[in-house]
């Protein structure tokens, strides 16, 4: 299913056992074909191969949500997905949310409601929230709390984040 090369070449030309695969992923609406060693996580792929550094590594083990991206529309921890697993999939990262410099409603609401402090959790938080709003345009407080419960934030105490998401939900037109 994959083109497999016998040597696993890392940046800096260190030869390690293993294999490199060529994968095709749609990232933020754009098709891209890149090489990735088997052990490379989707998070490393996005950050180190595509230089999309919005998704952060906060723990590397799926506990903090700072690396949240949308994989085929669903929020996942990019640190717990191998890049090769994303072959033929679509991925959305925070960099693809604003279109032509125009912030999304949610991004604007995060700014206006003081939902951002240090900003390190923000990318992941936004995508968890965005995925909720796309499947459930008018979520109640409990649903919002649940949707971002896998995204740790140490700065805000969450309240202003919940308020920002709630405001977007309340402001959304049916089907919008």
């Amino acid at each position: 299913m994959f083109d497999e090369t016998p040597q696993n070449t890392l940046p800096g030309a260190i030869k390690l056992p293993g294999a490199v695969y060529t994968i095709s992923v749609e990232v933020n609406g754009k098709a891209c074909t890149e090489e990735a060693p088997a052990q490379m996580t989707l998070l490393q792929f996005l950050r180190e191969r595509l230089f999309l550094t919005g998704a952060k590594e906060g723990c590397g083990v799926g506990e903090c949500g700072a690396c949240t991206v949308l994989l085929n529309g669903r929020a996942v921890d990019a640190c717990l997905v191998l890049a090769v697993e994303a072959d033929q999939a679509s991925v959305r990262t925070v960099e693809g949310e604003a279109r032509d410099g125009e912030l999304t409603l949610l991004q604007r609401a995060f700014i206006e409601h003081g939902a951002v402090q240090c900003g390190f959790c923000t990318s992941g938080m936004l995508l968890s929230a965005q995925s909720l709003l796309e499947s459930n345009p008018h979520p109640n407080r409990e649903e919002i709390v649940e949707a971002i419960s896998g995204n740790l934030c140490r700065c805000t105490g969450y309240v202003q984040i919940l308020e920002a998401i709630e405001a977007v939900g309340e402001g959304m037109e049916e089907g919008g």
Partner: peptide
């Protein structure tokens, strides 16, 4: 209640941390 000046960078993932 003026919103953070760095909001746009942070909500678009373009704010550069040493991590990045």
């Amino acid at each position: 209640g003026i919103s953070r000046l760095d909001g746009p960078e942070k909500v678009t993932g373009s704010a550069m941390f040493v991590h990045d």
